[in-house]
């Protein structure tokens, strides 16, 4: 076995600890920097212990924002990003679960055609269709709106396929039992299918929320006003090319605040996730 010898174990630990340091150090430094005054951060040597401006920095960033971004407070950026990420995650789940329901449980003409059309869109990521999509959004006057941020990203072939695969494992007898029990299509969906898909939905929600939260290209195109920026875009805009023009302490605070919600979602949903896995049933 690997790691049976004392030196093997030590080596393995050394590698793991090194890995953790490499991954964790930037995060640690972001937090440290967010507690110092702006000029202190850029003046060598780099401070490696927490400074005394935690409360001031966070209050300034959260309520006043960065001056070079027109003073949009970070809470507004967080709100924008949250609306977009939630809209995308919930929208994708709703759309994909209902389309998978239609494709798996109903026999209608062109069923396979629709399935393949959905499947083909997998091959067309946002970047490929970005120009026509942008044109449509401009024509619909959806620039600088939440709808414009969410709508083009709301359909998901991957999630549809995932739900389809899951629905295919539901035994036909269960569907028939529900029919005999007087559950119509809507009731069956609500009473049987949704509760059974719970853990799948939780898993997808985590993945899709983070996908929405970290969107870069689309919000960059869709938002002109500073108030409509998402936090990722705002971060990018805060950093100017001349070092002294960048309010580094505010940038660092914004970074910390940008990381927190996805971490929170993962930590909180992980419970539902694990419960879903433990309760796995046929």
């Amino acid at each position: 076995m690997i790691g049976d010898s004392r030196w093997g174990i030590r080596l393995a630990h050394a590698i793991l600890i090194l890995g953790i340091l490499i991954v964790a150090f930037p995060l640690y430094y972001v937090f440290i920097a967010s507690t110092h005054a702006g000029p202190d951060i850029v003046r060598p040597p780099m401070p490696l212990t927490p400074g005394g401006r935690f409360i001031e920095n966070y209050r300034a960033a959260f309520f006043e924002g960065a001056a070079n971004l027109g003073g949009v407070p970070v809470w507004r950026l967080l709100l924008n990003t949250a609306i977009m990420a939630l809209g995308i995650a919930v929208g994708k789940i709703v759309i994909s679960i209902t389309s998978a329901y239609a494709i798996v449980f109903f026999r209608f003409p062109g069923r396979m055609v629709f399935f393949w059309i959905i499947f083909v869109t997998l091959m067309l990521p946002v970047e490929v269709r970005i120009l026509p999509t942008y044109k449509v959004m401009v024509d619909l006057k959806l620039i600088d709106t939440y709808t414009g941020l969410i709508l083009p990203l709301i359909a998901s072939a991957t999630a549809t396929l995932l739900f389809r695969q899951f629905f295919l494992t539901i035994p036909g007898e269960l569907v028939e039992a529900a029919r005999i029990d007087g559950a119509g299509p809507f009731k069956f969906f609500k009473d049987i299918l949704l509760p059974l898909s719970k853990s799948n939905i939780a898993a997808l929600f985590v993945i899709l929320f983070i996908y929405g939260w970290t969107q870069y290209l689309w919000p960059l195109l869709m938002t002109n006003q500073a108030e409509m920026n998402t936090i990722v875009i705002a971060l990018r805009k805060m950093v100017s090319f001349v070092d002294h023009g960048t309010p580094w302490h505010i940038v660092m605070v914004t970074c910390v605040l940008a990381i927190l919600p996805p971490v929170l979602v993962v930590v909180l949903m992980q419970r539902a996730f694990v419960r879903g896995l433990v309760e796995t049933e046929k």
Partner: peptide, 12 residues
């Protein structure tokens, strides 16, 4: 009312 071979109970 029908009794199925695999019982078809609602698992949840």
């Amino acid at each position: 009312a029908m009794v199925f071979q695999n019982y078809a109970l609602y698992p949840h």
